[in-house]
Amino acid sequence: MSVRDLVEANAPEEFGYLDESSKREIRRAILTAVAVPGYQVPFASREMPVARGWGSGGLQVTLAVIGATDVLKVIDQGDDAGVNAANLRRLVVSTTGVDWTTDAREATIIQTRHRIPEGPMGAHQILVLQVPVPEPLRGVERDMRELGRMHAEADYSRMWVSLYEDLVRNGVITRTTGYPVLVNGRYVMATTPVPRWDVPKLDGSEVLFLFGAGREKRVYAVPPHTKVEPLTFEDVAFEVERTEGAACVLCGATEAYLIEVPERQAWVCSDTDWCERQRQPGGGAPELAQSPSHA
């Protein structure tokens, strides 16, 4: 028996873009992340065929967890047709052969660089988020060792001070994406890339949320049914973004995350898939992931 025969006989079945040992390493990091919700787990971020900062972290997570029967959806902002989303989707689909969809209800893995889909999601789904800056305390501390100590001791007083300063200087909390949350009563976590609007959807969800930061080489997770609380003072209510009187010009929705179209002085839904379904006959029934903050 030659060496070649031995290697071939023991070669694992390759599936998708990543080799098996890479997948195993990323899955181990993901398992740790799920076991310790909100904790940033280092992993050996691979060179990917997309530049770091363009979703390489989310892509690696997706490629590590995807299987042949999964159905993939990729969202850029709220839109499946964005160039970045289309490229990432093409890469995953062409290397794994999985089915893909734009319908958030049909997908089993949804990779996103901004939004959590507007509609309700279920236990059969995994949401993979592309994270630019995984460290919630980066704005208040740059020293990695000190950051490690702060997380280890749950010493988040300077995070609270930054919220205090924001309120004092601006009268309101101005932070939009990356609003800090306390996960499972233990770790403060950055909710990048999602806007404040989507933060309440992380709390007690049916869905497994996996966050991947390729450049910073970190993964972290919010498993289903995990308590996720936005950091807010007792007497300053957490608020989602909202513009009085704004409604989507396409579907008429007011209770959805809207983006402005400046040249038309109009608002449209950020989640194009959901918006489209609201416009179909019989699709107008409320189908929103509601939470008290959205009421």
């Binding site: 007083s157 300077r158 609270w160 001070v161 205090y164 003072f233 007792e234 007497d235 300053v236």
Partner: peptide
């Protein structure tokens, strides 16, 4: 406020 939040103060007012 930093010293106070470190001691557990969570009320802005």
């Amino acid at each position: 406020a930093e010293r106070l939040t470190a001691a557990g103060w969570r009320n802005f007012g």
